[in-house]
C-alpha cells in the first residue's frame, strides 16, 4: 500500500511530504523512544509516535522510514516542520490514539514487519 492510499483510507492529515506520497509502506513500528526506533525501525515503515520535536526527523531520515505518524491529534513543532521539508520527510497526523491507529492500519493489511 502507498502512503497516499493509507491517508485516504484513514482520513489522515498531511503536515509535510506531499511529494513523497507514492512511497510504498512495508510495515510499521510504534515507539516514543528515539533510540528504540533507531534500533528496531526498518526502511519504508510507518513510525507511530507522539513525539513532535525536531529530533524525530533525524530518526526518520537515518532509518529511511516511509512516514512519521503523530497520534492523539498532536501537531509537529514549527522547527520540526521546517526540518522535515528540508529533508523531505513525511509527517502525517491522526486524532486517534496509538492503539486505535495501529489497530486500523493492521486491519488494512499493514503488519509490524
Amino acid at each position: 500500500m502507498t502512503l497516499a492510499k493509507l491517508i485516504e483510507q484513514l482520513d489522515l492529515k498531511v503536515y509535510t511530504g506531499r511529494n513523497e506520497l507514492t512511497r510504498p509502506i512495508s510495515g510499521g513500528y510504534a515507539s516514543d523512544l528515539l533510540s528504540d526506533v533507531l534500533a528496531h525501525g526498518q526502511k519504508d515503515q510507518l513510525w507511530v509516535t507522539l513525539q513532535i520535536h525536531p529530533n524525530i526527523i533525524a530518526v526518520a531520515a537515518f532509518k529511511e522510514l516511509a512516514a512519521i505518524v503523530l497520534v492523539n491529534g498532536r501537531e509537529p513543532a514549527a522547527e520540526t516542520v521546517e526540518l522535515a521539508r528540508k529533508e523531505r520527510v513525511s509527517i502525517i497526523g491522526t486524532p486517534l490514539t496509538a492503539f486505535e491507529f495501529v489497530g486500523r492500519v493492521y486491519g488494512l493489511g499493514i503488519q509490524g514487519t
Binding site: 533510540s35 528504540d36 534500533a39
Partner: peptide, 15 residues
C-alpha cells in the same frame, strides 16, 4: 519525556 535516554545509545552505536 522527549524520548531520549532509552538506555540503548551505546548498544546502538556498537550494533
Amino acid at each position: 519525556e522527549l524520548g531520549f535516554g532509552a538506555g540503548m545509545g551505546l548498544a546502538n552505536i556498537k550494533k
